[in-house]
């Protein structure tokens, strides 16, 4: 078994997590991430469990909320902690490609 991740593997996960890394950090994480991932591999030694999953650690089901309007923030409060804003809007550097998701 190799003892560290490749640089590309480190960059891949850093990219998923939106974290930029210095060369130094990449070197460090090549080893550290590998150590953790090897440890996590122990899950493959676990035998004899069944396939049911439990989302939260208890047995009750979701209780539904009535469709009634509650208190809302005013635009000023929305902007209160936002580092960049313009008018009533929170602002970010221009994004042109349209949403990835919905």
């Amino acid at each position: 078994m190799k003892d560290k991740l490749s640089k590309e593997e480190v960059y891949h996960v850093a990219n998923l997590a939106r974290i930029s890394l210095t060369d130094e950090e990449v070197k460090k994480y090549q080893i550290q991430l590998k150590q953790i991932l090897d440890d996590v591999e122990k899950i493959n030694n676990v035998k004899g469990y069944d396939d049911d999953i439990l989302i939260a650690c208890w047995e009750e089901n979701t209780s539904l909320r009535k469709d009634e309007i509650g208190e809302m923030l005013n635009p000023k409060e929305v902007l209160e902690n936002a580092p960049h804003h313009s008018g009533n809007y929170i602002a970010v550097p221009i994004v042109i490609n349209g949403g990835e998701g919905a």
Binding site: V10, H12, V13, A14, L16, A17, I19, Y29, Q32, L33, I36, L37, V40, I43, V46, Y49, D50, D51, D52, I53, L54, I55, C57
Partner: peptide, 30 residues
């Protein structure tokens, strides 16, 4: 924190979610 969220991203990435996260949920239930 960086280390953990990078590892976490890896564990959920692509097919890994099945191999790791869902499996962990099953064993946790047991």
């Amino acid at each position: 924190v960086k280390r953990r969220i990078m590892v976490g991203s890896y564990l959920l990435s692509g097919e890994n979610a099945k191999i790791y996260y869902n499996k962990a949920l099953s064993i946790r239930d047991d």
